[in-house]
């Protein structure tokens, strides 16, 4: 079991199996997102309260859900990297951050657009949107710290530690913002993506959530593949994997 995991986490092995699985995930993601979008926009009944503006939840809720999950996954990889020094875990942590930040940005922008017809303002200090904004700062902090330290291993370890410190604080930030929000505007209830959703409207939402998940995995894997080639560019397996002819010939000559 352990030796299997160890082999799976070696960069050349990952490069090989991810080469097969990444395009498959990408196709699944594209199909789910396409079907979910068409279904959500055209084949669900109109909400009796919010009219057609509710259709924004099909992009807002998956982005908001995944933005948090990706941060958790990033912190988890960061912890694995710090404890066992598995390089692939750091490659993953580095690849998750931009995707997660993009999801967070989407959740913020679509939430703000949804808020305009619903609350009458482009920005409401709603607990969910405020938490999302702080989450964006956490992502930007991790990415900025990684890019500011010149030495790669040091940058990786510092970013990993910051991601873990962030994940310890995420629930505290979340609850304090919720509490702050309930204190100041008990009347404004966040209607954004509460589970009270009619089944006829729910199916496209699930399709979109899974679509975002596959998008995340496919995108993070392709980022990780580039990162690995960059980091191991002087290794022999990279030359073989990229089909460098001289390397192939030398290898054939050895045999």
């Amino acid at each position: 079991m352990w030796s299997f995991l160890h082999r799976l986490s070696s960069p050349p092995t990952f490069y090989r199996w991810s080469g097969v699985i990444t395009p498959i995930f990408a196709v699944i993601a594209a199909a789910l997102l396409l079907v979910g979008t068409v279904w959500g926009l055209a084949f669900t009944p109109t909400d009796y309260q919010q009219g057609d503006s509710f259709r924004i939840i099909y992009v807002h809720v998956p982005a908001a859900m995944l933005s948090l999950s990706v941060y958790m996954a990033m912190a988890f990889s960061a912890a694995i990297f710090l404890i066992w020094r598995i390089k692939l875990a750091d490659v993953f942590a580095a690849s998750f951050a931009p995707v997660g930040a993009a999801f967070t940005l989407l959740a913020l922008v679509t939430g703000s657009i949804w808020g305009r017809p619903t609350w009458g303002t482009w920005w409401e200090w709603d607990a969910r949107l405020t938490s999302e904004l702080i989450l964006l700062f956490l992502y930007l902090g991790v990415m900025a710290l990684r890019s500011s330290l010149p030495e790669r291993n040091q940058a990786a370890r510092a970013a990993a530690l910051l991601a873990i410190v962030g994940v310890v604080n995420v629930p505290i930030i979340h609850f304090s913002v919720e509490w702050w929000n309930s204190l100041h505007q008990g009347s404004t209830v966040s209607k954004l993506g509460r589970p009270a959703i009619d089944p006829s409207m729910a199916t496209p939402l699930y399709l979109m959530i899974f679509g975002f998940m596959f998008f995340w995995l496919a995108n993070a894997f392709s980022r990780a593949r580039v990162e690995i080639v960059d980091r191991e560019q002087n290794k022999r397996w990279v030359r073989e994997a990229l089909g460098d002819k001289a390397e192939m010939q030398r290898r054939a000559g050895e045999k």
Binding site: T37, I56, V59
Partner: peptide, 13 residues
């Protein structure tokens, strides 16, 4: 239903 600007801009972004 009158929300074209909001819905389509959210999906476009």
């Amino acid at each position: 239903g009158g929300y074209a600007g909001y819905v389509w801009s959210a999906y476009a972004i």
